[in-house]
Amino acid sequence: MLVVALLWAALTFVGEVLAVRLTPFRPAAAEEGDLIDSAFRSLTILSVPVLAFVLAVLAYSVLRFRVPGDPTQDGPAIRTHRPTVTTWLLVTTGLTVAVIIFPGTTGLLELHDRARHVDMVVQVQAQRYAWKTTYPEYGFSTWELVLPVGRRVRVEVTSTDVIHSFWVPAFRMKVDAVPGLVTTTVVTPSKAGSFQDDPDFRIQCTELCGVGHSVMRAPVRVVELSEFEAWVAQQSRSQ
């Protein structure tokens, strides 16, 4: 038992260090993305002890209880052990409820709250195999998504043919484009960047839509507010 406990502690320690030190993703470029990344990190931190516990028991049992050759004896006739079962159920139920509350429900509520008030609206229309963005406040359309830093944007997504899915890896947010429906997602870009410098700044279709699905991308550019306004003025003029 002590050996298993030590093994568990050691594995958990190593796992947690890895989970905290090694970030498995590039930094997000939206406030919502940070929320999602931190939810991911919380789940990883919670998972490590569970993973470590099962691995510790598994590894110890295999090494300690293995019998070379054919077994000549049966093991002890333990059918069940009530305290173990009760403890296990309490712990797993507790963990599940914990995960449901945080980061599940808390994250969900926060995202929901953010959707209540937005600074601007962008309409995105998916069609095989391109993304068209429309700025209803300014009355023009374009084939790239340009957003200002620090403004909360509601993206209204729809499709003209089959189901697509709107995903900007840098923002983390995703919502399907369904013909006949308008679906929405909310993003608040938090740092400037563009597709030329970082491939995560792209709209990527993530719902299989036909032959061009894998190359159905559009560039995304996040710029400072002043630059955005200049861009809007220029676009309005040229249309």
């Binding site: 999602i36 991911f40 998972s47 993973l51 099962v54 995960v99 980061p103 599940g104 995202l111 983390r172």
Partner: peptide, 21 residues
């Protein structure tokens, strides 16, 4: 075990928004 634990990440709505598909 790995399959099950990663399932939690997908059941969780906030992380699923990124991970789905």
């Amino acid at each position: 075990l790995i399959g099950g634990i990663t399932g939690i990440f997908l059941a969780d709505v906030p992380t699923d928004l990124h991970l789905q598909d």
